[in-house]
Amino acid sequence: QPRGLEDPELLARETVFSVSEIEALYELFKRISSAVIDDGLINKEEFQLALFKINKKESLFVDRVFDLFDTKHSGILGFEEFARALSVFHPNALVDDKIEFSFQLYDLKQQGFIERQEVKQMVVTTLAESGMNLSDDVIENIINKTFEQADTKHDGKIDKEEWKNLVLRHPSLLKNMTLQYLKDITTTFPSFVFHSQVDD
């Protein structure tokens, strides 16, 4: 059952968003969750349309990111899950939270480490989705160099500690974990003031 915006103050305490930002984020949530079925929840199709702009039926990353948002494993997103996950993408979110989320994202099989075969699968998917054509030799070369940088324990996989060390040395690897415009949420959705549940 859709429950809407129940406790904006609690969500504001537990995320990087202020109460006003939570209420403005709810305006965005209503827009996304009514795109296909107006039920106050975001299904995978609405998620894909809003956050990835791709119409393909299946996408490795849409599925993986959706699963990470869907912490209650219900196959559908409520506002609380949406707000908590997007909080990690806020410019003010803790770097450690971004590192953790990105590790989970790339640990496709959820084994606690990123293995070479997963990296290759993600590279091949990315190249296919962006229409780039690289030979298998070049792809293998890119992956070899990446593991030379990341796999400091030389066991053929990247664990969380190695991932953390890699992204701290190469912060640009976390670029996709920050959405700068989330800072503008209240000015983009000013109508939240008409539905506000809290006093100034």
Partner: peptide, 30 residues
């Protein structure tokens, strides 16, 4: 003499980041 080609400058995760990027920018356009 063997030509090993240009050095690889891109990390696999930089590449993957292109596909795994969320994009809500359309909702924020003024």
């Amino acid at each position: 003499q063997r030509n090993s080609g240009p050095p690889i400058l891109i990390n696999a995760f930089q590449l993957i980041g292109m596909s795994s990027c969320l994009d809500l920018s359309g909702f924020f356009e003024k």
